[in-house]
Design a binder for these strands. Sequence first.
DNA 1: GTGACAACCGGAACAACGTTCCGTATAGTT
DNA 2: AACTATACGGAACGTTGTTCCGGTTGTCAC
Lengths: 190, 190
Amino acid sequence: MSTPSTPDPAPRRNRADALRNTEAVLEAAKAAFAELGVEAPIRDIAARAGVGVGTVYRSYPQRSDLIVAVFRRELQATADEADRLADEHPPAEALRLWARSLARFVATKRGFAAALHSGDPAYQPLPSQFIGVLAPRVQRILDAGARDGSLRGDVRAEELIPALSRLADDREPETGGRMVDVLLDGLGRS
Amino acid sequence: MSTPSTPDPAPRRNRADALRNTEAVLEAAKAAFAELGVEAPIRDIAARAGVGVGTVYRSYPQRSDLIVAVFRRELQATADEADRLADEHPPAEALRLWARSLARFVATKRGFAAALHSGDPAYQPLPSQFIGVLAPRVQRILDAGARDGSLRGDVRAEELIPALSRLADDREPETGGRMVDVLLDGLGRS
DNA sequence: GTGACAACCGGAACAACGTTCCGTATAGTT
DNA sequence: AACTATACGGAACGTTGTTCCGGTTGTCAC
């Protein structure tokens, strides 16, 4: 406010060791999530990364930050696939194919879907982070389907995605897949 | 093995104070579940009942025992309703009406559906207890629907009930209800 | 190279919870 | 009234999330 001399008030670059640690924690979390599910103990993640718990909390104040960081790449791939499928297939088929893609994503992330819907404050930002990325792409498919009459128009992506991820999160992947199919059958026609 | 004298080896009747306490814990748990959800702290339940935690564990070694005991009556009512609806309505309609009944049950038991599918060992007996009671009644409806062609025949009650309870367990009851309807639409026809 | 300081680190410390265990109290019987 | 199997209470232990602070270490200016 007072000194107009510094146009970019960014005070300092991040320290190199801090960046290294942030990366190490990310890798450790990825391994821990794969092995123990997304509710792996923070202490465990810290130990794998060779750092103290304080360091984990500094880089990722909320557990959801860590989850989002670990799965960002795969999440983005799933989102991109929605666009690709929308371009290459009619809406109803694109939606069905994309649902399988989502089911694969959910099935390989133990505890992810449960965390998504838990209501636990530690996971509170997760739904918006997760659905925020996916919903616009899926909504495009739903809109196209509503236009050509192949999909009913009264379900929004923001409610469909949680429903699909809930159904897909079954101990028996085959059962989860079948229930997803049934739900999509219910979306068919108008 | 050695002494054939005692045909009924039941050694002693339950003590009256123990019965009183078991009942007090049940009432306390009912209140705690309603207020805090099914993962209410055991200490909290014990305090409400005016009892030590050891007493809670003696009557209900697993948390799932407490949950089943608390909801047994309502669960039974929901199960009975399946029979009633099956007698009074055609299969597809009976199923839809029953699904609403299940949705109401789930919606008013905070955390119940999540516990049902959590995989947490503390809740491990819950699915069989819960689904074991409901499934036979619901299967009757599904079978009738498969016979008259109004419902597809490739979905079993054991997988439908978890799916419905997952969908119904939404922060927005209206959304949950709509997704349940969509799933049932998918079950329609063959 | 050296000094100084902000940034960062590690892990101790605290709180909440599930669960076990055992010395004490007591209901029911003799 | 005395006795004993039964049940009780809650201390104690292990695990987890989360905060906090004394000590350490990059980084920059000189």
